[in-house]
């Protein structure tokens, strides 16, 4: 699993937030555009790209994008 690819796929689920905002240490739930809809997009993206199921709990507990990457990677 490639971290840069994950970061890019993560960023692609946002429509308003500038790409430059996204780094591994971005606290994604603090972004203005973060919503339950974007959360569902991330869940669906992980399912489609990595064939792994993450839940609301994974999103709740991960603070940064890297946290989430690590959780997905560990599944």
């Amino acid at each position: 699993m490639d971290k840069d690819q994950f970061l890019q796929a993560f960023a692609e689920q946002f429509d308003e937030t500038d790409l430059s905002v996204f780094t591994p240490s971005t606290k994604f739930k603090e972004l203005d555009e973060w919503s339950s809809m974007v959360a569902l997009m991330i869940i669906a993206m992980v399912d489609e790209n990595y064939n792994k199921k993450i839940t609301g709990a994974d999103l709740r507990e991960a603070v940064t994008i890297e946290d989430l990457f690590n959780r997905v990677h560990a599944k």
Binding site: S36, A39, L40, I43, T55, G56, A57, L59, R60
Partner: peptide, 9 residues
């Protein structure tokens, strides 16, 4: 659904 969406939502 609750598991997917989070308890807060």
């Amino acid at each position: 659904m609750e598991n997917i969406l989070s308890t807060e939502t």
